[in-house]
């Protein structure tokens, strides 16, 4: 046995820690409503990506550490924003003559099952806020939300998995492979879209040929992973797992603006 193993033997999951972790996980999954059903578990095939999602965790985490007052403050603000946002989004949906579609009324295609995107909404959460709704393709999402979007075709990789989900105020479209991912979020609330980039330390601005401002965010000046812009009605975030060139962002922004 190596010395290293001897060292690591001193780190053990205690009973107290186990119970605390389970309690926190339960609280978080209850808040986020992301628990898939057992049927989903079985329906998903080996094509499910083994790579972790690049999605930012929903900030409804009960914070155990009292050393983080700033984070607690942020969570309180986020909760307030969600409450306000629910109302605004309701109005937004009405503007688009939408009807929220419960997954139970949508026949999932084999593609959506393979994509791992089938998230059955909690029966107690079929209202506007708090529900998670998954669609089999973009036309289904469009007809539900009254949008006129198309699948992105300027991606720097060929996606093998796609998913179309709405939750709370977000519409989120995911394109991924085993090693790449692009998430496209659409939201009428500016703050909620910008919250997706709050962890990045660097940002800079680009302009499209049409003069639309695009803000890029990333871990450093030369590694941009997220772009945020508005089409005048909604805000959009394009988030990549890996760094991409400015030209990719500009092409995607141009493509998205052509849909609206």
């Amino acid at each position: 046995m190596s010395k290293y193993k001897n060292i690591m033997e001193n780190i053990e999951l205690t009973e107290e820690m186990r119970e605390r972790v389970l309690k926190n996980v339960k609280a978080r999954t209850n808040n986020e409503s992301v628990s898939p059903t057992a049927e989903q578990q079985h329906a998903q095939t080996e094509k499910t990506s083994s790579r972790p999602s690049a999605r930012t965790p929903v900030s409804l985490i009960p914070v155990r550490n009292a050393k983080r007052p700033a984070l607690i403050g942020s969570l309180a603000l986020a909760a307030t924003a969600l409450l306000i946002g629910g109302g605004i989004f309701f109005a937004w949906r009405n503007t688009h003559k939408t009807t929220v579609t419960n997954t139970s009324s949508v026949s999932p295609t084999s593609e959506s099952i393979i994509a791992g995107g089938l998230i059955t909404p909690d029966p107690s959460q079929t209202g506007v806020s708090g529900g998670i709704f998954t669609f089999s393709d973009i036309s289904e999402l469009n007809s539900s939300l009254g949008l006129t979007l198309s699948d992105l075709c300027c991606l720097p990789f060929t996606p093998t998995m796609k998913s179309y989900v709405t939750y709370d105020n977000f519409a989120e479209i995911s394109y991924s492979t085993d090693s790449e991912e692009c998430l496209w979020n659409i939201n009428p609330i500016k703050e909620e879209i910008y919250a997706l980039a709050e962890n990045f330390t660097s940002s800079r601005t680009l302009k499209t040929d049409d003069g639309v401002t695009v803000e890029l965010f990333g871990p450093d000046e030369n590694s941009m992973q997220t772009a945020i812009f508005t089409d005048g009605t909604s805000y959009h975030a394009i988030r990549f797992l890996n760094t991409v060139d400015d030209s990719v962002f500009l092409s995607l922004v141009k493509e998205i603006l052509s849909f609206t």
């Binding site: 996980v25 978080r28 999954t29 986020e32 992301v34 628990s35 898939p36 989903q40 578990q41 079985h42 998903q44 095939t45 080996e46 499910t48 990506s49 083994s50 972790p52 999602s53 965790p57 791992g116």
Partner: peptide
């Protein structure tokens, strides 16, 4: 949380 939300097979 990832395990629950992604439910990989």
């Amino acid at each position: 949380i990832k395990l629950i939300s992604q439910a990989p097979a």
